[in-house]
Design a protein around this nucleic acid. Structure first.
Lengths: 355, 355
DNA sequence: TTGAAAGCGATACCAT
DNA sequence: ATGGTATCGCTTTCAA
């Protein structure tokens, strides 16, 4: 036996020694492993690591358990824990389909903070390419304690039922629409259009264009804005003209090119970005803003203040994340409570130079 | 007994009858319930609902099981399933701390699509207010098959070890830094500054300001840009001057106010938004762009093309989400594989009128 | 103060 | 073609 080489037959060049992989990909340590190493039972491990008050463990044991856990790199298994517990503190938020503005993502991040303070775990679930009830089922599989749906469109009353039957104590929508069975944190986007329309009327404008982005997925956001303008204008004899516009210079140039033919004296441009785009195109076409045509946007972007004339805008303000987190928490604690509807959005008009 | 009123003593006005709550908040149905209702065993339910090939179930039974599941509104319990299976297909992505631009969120959304096509479930985990290894432990509790970290800063080598020991088959960082033990999808942000610096030098500029946003959380993004400019300038005798700027008109006006004293003939302004802000302030101060001072940004925002002069910029291009998803998938399938580093970012210079 | 054991829900092996 | 059952990791009575 002495002459049998200890090394494998292949020359080492063929299988170069891998650099050491310190975290050996061995089996994942469980609380049983910790118990074994510490010389105690799994129950004790659980008591120590969860600081269970109802039971007294000697400091010596505590230390041994802690050290064993540390040494093994033990991390409890959330699925097992919540399976046993019968519930979790997960708030599920499907990731919005449409691209979100800075306002909204700021808001989301605030909300996450606030919910975390209330000891919830916020999880954004990527539901791209699922529709309606399929998505609801996928969310329900995770057994979240609450579901918060930003945006619009995907949830049906059936979906709400599925979620609630699967243990969700609260289902809330955050958007322009109300869904049967769910709490509604209502953003009445028509208000934005209404403010803009009213303002333009006050400025004496009578033939009002309304930009409708041609990008897909923005319809649920642009539709209500348009309706709002129509509401504001109703009965005044003024005219409202929807205008398709893609978020590209060429599209804006084309629209500006046929502008004089449209006979409009004002335009509400969906938001500040579209407004800036269109205003520039109009100016390049020799159309005076606000002389020939008044322009107004929405969102009160800082960048809108940089153009000349400075862009008038409808400023949006959302309920604070903290407030909203409280609403979620209340809905979770009292699932039987009335399905209150809250207005989450307030708007105000910032009149600058473009209108 | 006949005279004992059936109604509770309180007048009904005091506790008005609640509207019916259709989805009775009863216990959540399990596969055992389905089995009972269909008159089969839980095993059979599992076979039917998972379309298990290896076993033949009569069509009659299939239908009965399906109908029972439908009637009860049964949804499988993801935690139980993955506990049993010993693994999940979850890709965990901590939500980035710093506010993200449109470029990045577009990219994230693409990536989610692509990963879903590969049958992964993407989950963004809100880790606000956790630092370093605490966060890593929290992520590890979910036992994701892969962890993808956007941005910078939070992960340590210890964190990587924790994640891998807890069963993560791949840990990838997506940002300017490399972390020991993790795959690096490297965005060398210095390249952005380098391009800008080189361009300004070519234009004959020698005293270059570099805007550093004073907003917190942007340091890891702005630092490398500044370094890149310094690299480009090194040995040319040109000067580089960091300039703090907050994203507000007042801050920009203040900086513009002391501009002549700074003696600069060019400025790279972190990104297009800051560049637009500063350029406008300079112009308002009577400083000619690009005559007195050249201005360049980054990101190639559409809005940057609207100012006059049109804003020069460094365009960023990220690897496609599809490509990236493939990398994640490969890392998962071959966890032992070399820790490859990929360049995810490519940059190009778009010279317009402001430089 | 600690341990033994039941059970959360779903799956897959081994019988029938 | 189906059913019984052990098992995943953890918490929590109940006993000792």
């Amino acid at each position: 036996m002495a002459h049998i080489p200890k090394q494998p037959p292949q020359p080492s060049a063929q299988r170069p020694p891998r650099p050491p992989r310190p975290p050996a990909p061995g089996p994942v340590p469980t609380s049983a492993d910790v118990a074994r190493l510490a010389g105690v039972s799994r129950a004790t491990v659980s008591y120590v690591l969860n600081n269970t008050e109802a039971v007294r463990i000697s400091d010596a044991t505590r230390r041994r358990v802690r050290e064993a856990a540390e040494e093994l790199g033990y991390v409890p298994h959330a699925a097992a824990r919540s399976l046993r517990a019968g519930h979790s503190r997960m708030v599920l938020m499907p990731t919005p389909q449409a691209p979100v503005g800075p306002l909204y993502s700021q808001f989301i991040s605030e909300l996450q903070w606030a919910l975390r303070r209330l000891d919830y775990t916020v999880v954004q679930y990527g539901s791209v390419g699922m529709r309606g009830d399929d998505a609801a089922r996928a969310w329900a599989e995770l057994r979240p304690v609450a579901v918060l749906l930003p945006g619009a469109g995907t949830l049906t009353p059936r979906g709400v039922t599925v979620l609630k039957r699967s243990g969700a104590r609260a289902v809330l929508t955050l958007g322009p629409e109300r869904v049967e069975g769910a709490h509604a944190l209502l953003m009445d986007l028509r208000e934005i259009g209404h403010r803009a329309g009213t303002h333009l009327l006050e400025r004496g404008r009578r033939r009002i264009g309304v930009v409708v982005p041609s990008e897909p997925g923005l319809d649920t956001l642009s539709g209500p804005r348009l309706d709002g303008v129509r509401q504001a204008v109703a009965g005044t004899g003024a005219r409202v003209e929807p205008l398709r516009l893609a978020y590209e210079e060429e599209s804006a140039a084309a629209l500006a090119g046929r502008w004089r033919g449209l006979g409009l004296d004002a335009v509400f441009a969906y938001n500040d970005a579209y407004a800036m785009l269109l205003m520039r195109a109009l100016q390049d076409e020799g159309i005076d803003v606000p002389g020939d045509t008044a322009v107004i946007g929405a969102d009160d972007l800082l960048l809108g203040r940089l153009l000349r004339p400075r862009l008038s805008t409808v400023r949006l303000e959302l309920l604070s994340g903290e407030r909203l987190a409280e609403l979620v928490d209340r809905a979770v604690r009292d699932p039987g409570g009335a399905l209150e509807t809250h207005d989450v959005l307030t708007t105000s008009l910032i009149a600058r130079q473009s209108s």
